[in-house]
Design a protein around this nucleic acid. Structure first.
Lengths: 394, 394
DNA sequence: GTGCTTGTTTTCGCCTCTGAACTAAGATGA
DNA sequence: TCATCTTAGTTCAGAGGCGAAAACAAGCAC
């Protein structure tokens, strides 16, 4: 019952332009000749379209490749400085603002520490807006060059222009962060859940690269997942799809901070692991977890088993070609225990879907949330590169 | 990272033709004038395109509506007899073959009983092929008029032309049912999991109508689900997505016939319910279940709770706008216990996604599997109505 | 019959793609 | 050195598509 939209001749141009630009972006420096092969477009179309893009400075030349006996190929690439994207990571303990060029190279960043339990929305909005100013001036980039601001936040983000957020751990229930930011900037805004922006980053630039059906799981303080269907993040009807951490793996099991019982997060979230291991944290969770892992406590094996159950449920239900385990807890667990995790997953999955899935570790570090947020801007740019840029007013 | 394909001018025509045909199909008799509004196409395009479709006999006139003071509107509709679709339901106890016209009115059907544990693939293929002949001659339809054959089967169906099936309960491991059928017919074949074809039927013609993000769950002997994303069935990388029945809701719980432990099916599948209630079945499961429901056994409440956990996991992970509970067990449970099922689901879901979901009962009876299988043919027809029909050879 | 209203068709201009002819730019070898 | 070959990229004419607007069709009201 998919509802395709009507199309007109111009949509073709827009669509093909996006196809071309994506090919150019993901293949690095490429000749027009290669592009005809990659996109399926005719040489004529590639020629006129690249001429347009060169004229708009979206694409630039990048040297030549001499060929054996013919005219050399001129290499083209997306101009990394055509525009910039801001990526913001709003986390428990800090707000991080990064400025990225179109190649997603970080040009500047700034952190604002948050006092625990000081998650006043106004304060965070001010940090973000101040951060944007700082990274722009640090990098010598003017607001007109910025294509947009992506923000990754905890909790559920309602679809819609106001970016309304429900984040229990922040005490946020219906905070319109997008609207708050809109007061201070007229740049395009993209607000999304942080697990999803991290997933976006791993999908585009990390271990998920090239996968079309994938799940990127985030194990940290919270537990979440990004479900990728047909190459794009699956959001569900109200944009909260992927709340894997609160799926139940033990009916009526351990209490979870969400108020429910038996949630996956209540077994494999960092607090749950430390709690079950009887570790009274002294503040450095990474060290604590390392201690638990080194201790050979039975809690480690249990955790792997529970994680395997959670992953197996994804395998059975989603049938992805790849599962990427990210988040610092995930990576720390995976570094030593990946084979065990795979085994535990296999033990709880159906054979056919398990055989179709590869389980790998995430490649990107803790900056992935901000990078992924910036990628939201990039995605928009690649899909609709012709949209007139909104000029910043403030 | 969605990979749009390049498009050419002709793709537009094909796409818009599909848009128009769908509008016509789902709006019933409609005037050209209405169609311009519904599709967004210009009156000119609608006019030329409907002329084509009328010429091809895909669309026919269906009377007029006099208007107040202007030229009357001529109503158009899809010609229900332009073509026919065969839908096949391969179940534990029988093979059912139905012939449907384009409006999905059943024109003829035939059943072949299967002896328990007599699931020889060759036999079943013979039944299907014989059934096709029977329904065609019963309805006086020639093979040239048939647009295709859809088959709903248990288990996992590999993507690909051979329709390779893995169905543990049938003892099938790699049975190429599609290839077996191909020997006896040259009509287009569509083989899919039966839970998915039932889901397709509920989505198009039952309680799921109009939903774009939905899950249709099937509770019967087996337990499965159809996940609908953006209006189409989500299949995952190897077409096995939706194996909800074998997701774990109790880590290390009750053993399941799949060999695993703690599967949802081991709690809410019919065999599990009867087993937990201590009922030694005398063969009529529907009656047995009715007995359990009437007995007010605590098993009923437990079952509701487990089902609620399973549904809540879907709510959290998939965030659908609608969950349709189908399958005979599901409907029998739901008829008296739907409010309790909703409550149990709410208790195990996050508030936001739960609030966005409505949980309803399936509307279609046991014929939904065959109907949905035929709908696979219809879907293809509506999406690509210009494809030349393959002439039947045998 | 004359105007009015609304539905449908036709005409015409513009846009997009493609195949084919054409131009560009270097390598090769006599 | 220069004609020839090879491969890359551009230009042009033609076909097919859509939409706006004009034209045509078919009733109603008076």
């Amino acid at each position: 019952m998919a509802r395709p939209q009507r199309r007109t001749v111009r949509d073709i141009r827009r669509g093909n332009r996006a196809v071309l630009l994506r090919a150019l972006y993901f293949s690095g420096p490429t000749s027009r000749n290669d592009l005809t092969a990659r996109t399926g477009l005719s040489a004529a179309t590639v020629s006129t379209m690249t001429a347009d893009l060169l004229g708009e400075n979206i694409v630039v030349e990048a040297g030549q490749v001499e060929s054996d006996g013919g005219r050399p190929r001129v290499l083209l690439r997306v101009n990394p400085e055509y525009g910039f994207a801001v990526g913001v990571d709003v986390a428990e303990t800090h707000v991080r603002v990064g400025l990225f060029d179109l190649e997603m190279t970080e040009r500047a960043k700034v952190d604002y520490m948050l006092r625990p339990a000081r998650h006043d929305p106004e304060l965070i909005a001010r940090h973000i807006l101040a951060g944007v100013d700082v990274v722009l001036s640090d990098a010598g980039v003017s607001p007109e060059q910025v294509l947009g601001i992506g923000v990754g936040v905890p909790g559920i983000v309602e679809p819609g222009a106001d970016g309304v957020i429900h984040a229990k751990t922040f005490g946020w229930d219906g905070v319109p962060l997008g609207a708050l930011l809109r007061r201070g900037t007229s740049l395009p805004l993209y607000v999304d859940n942080g697990a999803k922006t991290m997933g976006q980053a791993e999908l585009w630039f990390g271990s998920g690269r090239g996968a079309s059906e994938a799940v990127i799981v985030l194990l940290g303080v919270g537990v979440g997942a990004t479900i990728v269907a047909d190459g794009t993040t699956f959001r569900g009807v109200s944009s909260s799809a992927g709340e894997w951490g609160h799926t139940k793996i033990v009916a009526n099991g351990r209490p979870c901070r969400c108020g429910g019982r038996g949630c996956l997060e209540a077994y494999v979230g960092i607090e749950a692991i430390l709690d079950r291991a009887g570790v009274a944290s002294r503040g450095d969770w990474e060290e604590d977890l390392a201690g638990v892992l080194a201790s050979k406590s039975p809690v480690v094996e249990e955790t792997v088993t529970y994680l395997g159950v959670g992953l197996a449920n994804l395998v059975n239900l989603i049938n992805p070609e790849k599962i990427v385990i990210g988040g610092w807890v995930g990576v720390q667990l995976g570094e030593s225990l990946l084979p065990d995790i795979r085994r535990a997953t296999a033990a709880n999955s159906l054979a056919e879907p398990y055989a179709a899935t590869s389980i790998v570790l995430g490649r990107l570090g803790p900056d992935a949330v901000a990078l992924g947020a910036a990628t939201l801007v990039l995605e928009e740019f690649l899909n609709a590169p012709q949209v007139a840029r909104i000029t910043a007013a403030g």
